[in-house]
Structure formats: C-alpha cells, structure tokens
Nucleic acid binder design. Structure first.
Lengths: 264, 264
DNA sequence: GGCATTGGCA
DNA sequence: TGCCAATGCC
C-alpha cells in the first residue's frame, strides 16, 4: 500500500460513478485505454465491430484528489475492471494508483468509516492506441431530454424494427420505426417545468432526418444510470453524438454513423 | 395522424384497461377478431386447442369517445398488440382508429400533458371469423367471489391434481382436487361485509357438481387484474361461464366445458 | 416509503 | 429456469 513512486494517484469520492461508467461501455468495448494527464482521465475507442465510437472524460476537478506526475496510458480489460468494481460498496471511496515501475494499476476501496480497505491490482495491457480525433462540429439539431425517456423511446421502437428514423424540427422531434408487424412513431415536443431534468429542449439550426441502428442505440442506453438527462446532437449525414453528462465529473459520449437510407 | 375517412375512431380514458384485457386473453388466443359496431367492440373465439371459449365486450358507453360509422371486423395479432400496449404509459389515453381504405389499425397514446404522442400502426389480418352463438342460459348456480380469492383456490389446488371438482350448494361452494400426494379441499361459504367486493354470494336453483381442467382455469385467472370480483355460472353438464366484469366498460368471459367424470 | 411487478443475469 | 435487482405504483 505504499504510494512511493506512484506517478498516478487519484481518489474518487464515489466508486459508483466509475461503476456506472464502466457498465455503460463494457458491452461495447472489450478493453480500454485510458489516457491519464494532469487534466483528467479520458478514453476513446471504437466498439469491437468498429461501428460506434465511445468517448469518456473524467475531469481531474471531479476527483477528491488528483495527482498525475507524468502522462500515462493505462490499458485495462473492462471485464477485469468490472469484476474489481463489483467488490466496491456503493458509497465506497475509490483510489486508483499506478507506479510506472510496475505494470499494474491498483484500485482501492474504502468505506466511510474506513473500517474496511480492499485493494485490487489489475495487470495492464499493451493496447494499440488508435488516436481518433473527433472534430467538434456545430450540430444542426441538439435535443436534450430525460435519459429514461430516451431509453423508453429506443426500447419501445425496438419492438417494431431494427432501425429508427429521427426527424428533428424546431419544436419537436419524431422517432419512427417500421417493421413487419407495423409502424411505431413517438413524437416529443419541447416542454419545461420546475423539475428541469424532465425538460425536453431543442436547439435547431437546420432540420434533420437520420436513420440509425437501434441495436447500438440500445447499447448506448446502458449509460442511463449515469445521468438524468441525455443530449442528442444531430447533423444530416454526420454521426449522432449522444452525450450523458457525468454530474460534476465529465461525460460519456457515443458516436454512431447514420444508416444510408436506400430510398433516399 | 389525420382522422379524415376513419370509419372507426374511439378513445379510451385508460390504456391500461385494454392492456389488462389483452394480457388476460393473449395466452389463450393467438389472434383476435374484433367486431366493431355502434354499440361497442366485441371479440369471441375458441382458444388454439379449441377447448375454451373467450368472449370480450367493450361497450361504447365505456369509452371517452366512440364513433363507428360502419360495422367492421378488425383482425389483430395479439402478440403485436401486446408489443404496442407495452409502449403505453399506465395513465395514457388510448385512441384506436381505423380507416377502411387502409389495412391498418392505429393505436395512439397520449399522456396527460400531451407532450408525448406515440402512435402505432398494426397491419390487419384476415381471420376466419367463426361466429359462435352462445345461448344465454339460466344457470343452476351463480357464485360471486373476490377474483383474487378464486385465483388462490385455483393455484392452491393445482398443486394436487389436474382437475378441480366444484360442488355448489345453497350457501357454500366446495372446490376439490385429488392427486398422487393427496387431496385438497377448499370450502367457501356465503358472506358479506361492508366492502362488498370481498363478499361471497351464491344464487342456487339446483345444486351442481362439475369437474374442470385446472390448466384452463389457471389461464383464465390471468384476468384477475381486470376486476376485484369474478362470477362463476354453473349448470350440470354445461360449460362453466367465468365472468370478469371490466368496471364501467364491459366484461371478459371464459367458457369451459366440464370433464366427464369416469366414476359418474 | 414500501410493495409488487418486471426485466436482467446466472 | 430461477433468482436478484431495479423500477414503477400505491
């Protein structure tokens, strides 16, 4: 448990935050390559089928303590990390530590009263880091809505087909799926209330109409527990960017290229 | 979403009512043929094994709005309808619409604040409509009891055998099942209290003793959520008529022919 | 806040 | 297929 020589040592107040993040991405990615710098930890990778892209950012300010003496990349199996995180109590504090003289990363869990300390060393993996620069474009439509409601839309329409059409206009967004048994349409209109996490807001520059594979959107909604709200950023002929803010800490983003509609 | 040309358009205040009805019958029937007239929607069909008969009536007065310009029969897959109804919120209003220039029926769900509108088109099926006239006979015994209590009787006795004997006398009714492990008997007597939905009442003209397959009764009790009370109408050598009233709206009836007891 | 039901996981 | 967790309803 010595910390001497550790070039990376951070403490997260709630292990459950990382738990939710890993739950959200482990079905898409087998392994993870975390870039650790002074400003935070981030991950970016294509899913195993090279269709979707996952981007996670955990800002250093979101941690209780954050120290990173030298930039380092930690290659971690998400399967192993999931096992480790299962050993954390929900309110446990989480310490992540790495000493570059070793090839392990250490996860430590402490509960509030520090009566229990659990520590797990995971072997690091050497992963090909595909550095994928994603241009931050201005999207034609940006929709914010409750994350559970988005999951609901995706799950409901998955009953009707493999693809979902998203048609966004100034004040409402239409989700549509067609299949053998019939057609399903769900229309949401802008709304606001006292509980702002229940709002639906739309910022539109240009209307969009895009088609996506429901299978992937469904996997993305595994991130629902991370945040009450989700943001869909859409542009014609561009990948969707689905963002779940990690409160106080950062975000998880999923990118998915639209299907090219045969009838277009 | 135009309603022009719709020859059938009705609005039900609670989608959950139809949900419960469909849940109650979908295990017995694969498809459903709904006769829609000015006075309501009704369905009548044998189960796939041609042993039991299901009859549903939804009276027009039970709807918020009801318009049926011309009698029409809607052939609907209950599997598909179940999928559609999964997409309804519990308190959603339900609109059912059909235009006879199309071969679809449209189910629309609106929540209270109408910020979300979901609409599903189901393809209609061409079903052989077996019109089965059921004579309304006067039954020898009519038993009313709490629906949950009837379900309990059926489930409890199903532990002991495949068949249930129902023996009804003037003031009490006996349910009995015999099997390898032994015999189970449950006797209910007439009773009444302030909460009349907890009453057991018996109207007897003639005592009856009948045997039924528990497997079917068990399936019928899927209708328990529809109503607090259930009515058993029994006559010697006649099918049982099990009726779950749909409050304010109509009823679901199940008919089941008695087993002929070998020892009789 | 507790209970029941449902969906996910083993 | 059975158990457990999470969610939605009362």
């Amino acid at each position: 448990m010595t910390t001497n020589g550790a070039i990376f040592e951070v403490k997260m107040a709630q292990a459950s935050v990382l738990k939710k993040v890993i739950d959200a991405i482990k079905d898409l990615l087998g392994d993870s390559s975390w870039d650790c710098t002074n400003s935070g930890m981030s991950l970016q990778a294509m899913d195993s089928a090279h269709v979707a892209l996952v981007n996670v950012l955990l800002r250093s300010e979101g941690f209780e303590n954050y120290r990173c003496n030298r930039n380092v990349t930690l290659g971690i199996s998400l399967g192993s990390l999931t096992k480790v995180l299962k050993c954390a109590g929900n309110d446990d504090e989480l310490t992540i530590r790495h000493d570059d003289k070793t090839n392990v990363v250490t996860f430590g869990f402490t509960n509030d009263e520090s009566e229990r300390y659990a520590e797990f060393d995971l072997k690091l993996m050497n992963l090909d880091s595909e550095s994928l620069a994603i241009p931050e474009i201005e999207y034609d439509c940006v929709v914010k809505m409750p994350s559970t409601e988005f999951r609901r839309v995706v799950q409901d329409l998955a009953q009707f087909g493999d693809s979902i059409d998203i048609v966004c206009a100034k004040t409402n967004v239409l989700f549509e799926a067609t299949g053998d048994i019939g057609k399903g349409q769900i229309r949401l209109s802008e709304r606001s209330s006292k509980k702002s996490d229940q709002d639906v807001t739309i910022e539109m520059i240009e209307p969009v109409r895009l088609t996506f594979a429901l299978k992937y959107l469904n996997m993305f909604t595994k991130a629902t527990p991370i945040s009450d709200v989700v943001q869909l950023a859409l542009s014609n002929n561009h990948p969707l960017c689905l963002e779940y803010p990690i409160p106080e800490v950062g975000r998880v983003r999923f990118y998915l290229a639209p299907k090219i509609n045969e009838e277009n």
